[in-house]
C-alpha cells in the first residue's frame, strides 16, 4: 500500500542521506551498542563457568522468573484493558474525554519512585484499598501481585498510545460491510477489527513488556524485596553491586539482555507475520 522508500531514481526535495545515515550509525553505536558490548565484555571476563554459576543460582533464577513472569502478565493485562481504554477514547465523545486522555500519560510522566510510593500507600495492609482487601485474604503490597500491579500501572500508556492511531484509522465502512454480510457484532469484532489492529496491539504489548522488564523504581517500593519471593532481577543487580560483585551483576545483566532480546525478537517475528497479512503480502 505504501512505499516508504519511494522511487529510488527520483530526486528528493530534501537531500542528506549520507549525513543522516552516518549520524544514525554513530548515534546507535555510542548510545546503544557501546554500553551493551561493554556489558558483554565485562561478563565474558568472568569465564563461562562462573557466569553459568551466577546465573543458575536459585536466587537469581527466582528473580528472573518473577521479573519476566510479572512483566508478561502485566503486559497481557495492559493489552486487554488498554484496548478497551483506547477504544473508548477514540470511538466515543463524552464530557471529560480530553482530561481522561491526558491522564493516560501520567504513569509516563511521574517519577517511578512516586508511583511506587503512591501504590504502596493505597495497597498496603492499612492503605485505602489494602485495608478492605486484607480481610478477604488478598495481600497486594509486598507480594508478586503488588509487583504485577505496579507493572500494569506503568505499562498502560504504551498500549493505549500505540492503539489510538490504529483505531482512529479503522474505517467504519468495514464494520458496515461486515454487518451487511450478516456478521454478528462479535464476529465483526473478532474477525474484522481485531486482525486489522493486531500489529498495533502487538507493538503496544512489546513496548509495555519491555518497559515492565526494566522497571525498577516503582517496584522496589511495593515489593518487600524478599530473596526468592519478591526480589526482581534489577534489584538483585543493585545488591550485587552494593557488595562490590561487579562481575556477578554484569552476568545477571547480560542474561537479562539475552532474554529480553530473544523475547522482543520473537514478538517482532510474530508482528512481521501479522503485518504482512494485514498489509497484504507483497
Amino acid at each position: 500500500m505504501f512505499h516508504y522508500l519511494g522511487n529510488p531514481n527520483r530526486a528528493r526535495v530534501l537531500p542528506g542521506f549520507g549525513i543522516t545515515m552516518g549520524y544514525t550509525v554513530l548515534y546507535l553505536s555510542v548510545i546503544v551498542l557501546l554500553p551493551l558490548s561493554a556489558l558483554l565484555l565485562k561478563s565474558a571476563g568472568l569465564g563461562w563457568e562462573r557466569l553459568w554459576q551466577t546465573i543458575s543460582h536459585p536466587r537469581v533464577l527466582a528473580s528472573f522468573k518473577l521479573t519476566f513472569g510479572a512483566a508478561t502478565i502485566a503486559a497481557t493485562i495492559n493489552a486487554l484493558f488498554g484496548l478497551i481504554v483506547a477504544w473508548t477514547l477514540t470511538r466515543y465523545k463524552f464530557p471529560g474525554k480530553r482530561l481522561m486522555d491526558a491522564m493516560i500519560d501520567l504513569p509516563f510522566a511521574m517519577p517511578t519512585a512516586v508511583s511506587g510510593i503512591a501504590l504502596t500507600a493505597v495497597y498496603a495492609p492499612r492503605g485505602w484499598i489494602g485495608q478492605y482487601l486484607e480481610p478477604l485474604g488478598l495481600k497486594v503490597a509486598y507480594t508478586p501481585l503488588g509487583i504485577t500491579l505496579a507493572l500494569v500501572f506503568i505499562g498502560l500508556p504504551f498500549v493505549v498510545r500505540t492503539l489510538q492511531p490504529a483505531l482512529a484509522d479503522l474505517d467504519q465502512e468495514i464494520e458496515e460491510a461486515a454487518a451487511s454480510l450478516g456478521a454478528s457484532r462479535l464476529q465483526t469484532f473478532w474477525r474484522v477489527i481485531v486482525p486489522t489492529i493486531l500489529p498495533a496491539l502487538l507493538t503496544g504489548f512489546a513496548l509495555a513488556l519491555a518497559r515492565a522488564i526494566g522497571e525498577y523504581g516503582s517496584v522496589i517500593f511495593i515489593s518487600s524485596n524478599l530473596p526468592m519471593k519478591t526480589e526482581i532481577a534489577s534489584l538483585l543487580i543493585i545488591s550485587k553491586l552494593d557488595q562490590y560483585d561487579v562481575a556477578g551483576a554484569t552476568a545477571i545483566a547480560a542474561a537479562m539482555l539475552a532474554i529480553s532480546f530473544g523475547m522482543l525478537l520473537a514478538i517482532n517475528a510474530v508482528q512481521h507475520f501479522v503485518a504482512r497479512r494485514a498489509e497484504g503480502g507483497a
Binding site: 458496515e176 451487511s180 450478516g182 454478528s184
Partner: peptide, 30 residues
C-alpha cells in the same frame, strides 16, 4: 444483516487482512 441486501461501498471496504477468496467467502462463513 437481516434484510438480504448486498452493499457495495465507494471505497470498497474490503477486509485488508483477508485474501480475495476469504473476502468473498466471509458472508458465508459467518
Amino acid at each position: 444483516g437481516e434484510r438480504g441486501v448486498g452493499f457495495v461501498f465507494q471505497h470498497y471496504a474490503l477486509f485488508r487482512h483477508m485474501t480475495v477468496f476469504e473476502n468473498v467467502a466471509f458472508g458465508l462463513r459467518v
